[in-house]
């Protein structure tokens, strides 16, 4: 009995030929990636010799930066704080305006003849990189943190507006219909139908934008628009590597810290679980816990 099974297995038909389609696709994809890459690499004066030497050169710089010059720690922290302030105010500007624009750009909230131009405006703003915006604002507002804040804020309006409108478009229409049928006004529909659904995601996007703005504002100083970027730029220019190392270290630690805290808060907002964070703990000190719901 068992021997027949084995013979049957060994007599199985020959393996079918692999189909050609997937292989063609694989080759096609490889070419689609490879051809632009080669075109790009040819234009950039990249030779094998340069690539081989690059790690050594970069390592030279990095090892010159460490140990960093601790004497400028205070100065770097001051400048980093300025960058943080810029990022914060820019995020608030972006959040406030994008909140309104987000509603106006959402097709389920505003009529099409309003939503379409607002969308176009938002993507037009978004297409300017922050630094380019800052450069364009300098002739009017001069060098300094004010210009940088405006530029970052404007760019944030563009990105946050798009994200907000997408969140609003993705909400469940059911509660809205219920509210309309109960005679709710447009405003109360928004307050009790849209906001409870959309707000956690919008808030998470605001925090996410703050993380991005911290990085962007650290860079703004390069063109003189305030913050720590100016320091790093001049230290590297004058080849003061230990000081540049300190500046870089301060930026890295700050960004890592803010990413960590903001990421934790975002997860907490999105998951909607009861909090165990410091704010909730403080609340527990101050208030007696809510009584359990009666069955």
């Amino acid at each position: 009995m068992s021997s027949t099974v084995t013979t049957q297995a060994s007599k199985s038909p020959p393996r079918p030929q692999a189909p050609v389609g997937p292989r063609l696709i694989r080759w096609g994809v490889t070419l689609i990636i490879l051809i632009p890459f080669i075109w790009g690499a040819l234009g950039l004066e990249i030779s094998p010799g340069r690539i081989a030497r690059a790690p050594e050169l970069v390592w030279n710089i990095v090892s010159a930066m460490f140990p960093p010059d601790w004497s400028i720690l205070g100065r770097s922290m001051d400048k980093m704080l300025e960058s943080l302030y810029i990022a914060w105010v820019a995020t608030i500007i972006g959040a406030m305006f994008s909140f309104v624009f987000g509603f106006l750009a959402a097709t389920n909230m505003a009529p099409r003849w309003i939503a379409t131009p607002i969308r176009a405006l938002l993507s037009a703003i978004r297409a300017f990189p922050e630094l380019v915006l800052a450069i364009m604002l300098i002739p009017a507002f001069g060098l300094g943190a004010f210009t940088g804040t405006l530029a970052l804020g404007l760019h944030s309006i563009g990105t946050l507006g798009k994200l907000t409108s997408e969140v609003i478009e993705g909400i469940d229409e059911g509660p809205l219909e219920a509210m309309k049928s109960a005679g709710g006004t447009k405003l109360s529909t928004i307050r009790f139908g849209v906001l409870p659904q959309a707000m956690p995601n919008i808030l998470a996007y605001w925090l996410y934008r703050f993380e991005i703005n911290v990085r962007a504002s650290a860079v703004l100083g390069i063109i003189g628009a305030g913050g720590i970027g100016a320091d790093l730029f001049s230290f590297l220019k004058f080849r003061d590597f230990p000081q540049a190392g300190m500046t870089l270290l301060v930026v890295m630690v700050t960004v890592l810290l803010i990413d960590g805290v903001s990421g934790a808060v975002r997860r907490r907002i999105i998951s909607g679980e009861p909090g165990k964070g410091p704010v909730s703990k403080l609340m527990g000190l101050v208030r007696t816990p809510r009584p359990a719901p009666q069955q």
Binding site: I46, V58, V62, L131, V219, V251, D259
Partner: peptide, 27 residues
């Protein structure tokens, strides 16, 4: 750590390493 450094800071570091005005540093 890689993500913590803004793109332009990388550019500045690589420019001081491989030379000013070089698109290689940008890449």
């Amino acid at each position: 750590v890689i993500r913590a450094i803004p793109d332009l800071f990388y550019a500045m570091i690589f420019v001081s390493a491989v030379g000013f005005g070089s698109p290689f540093a940008g890449a």
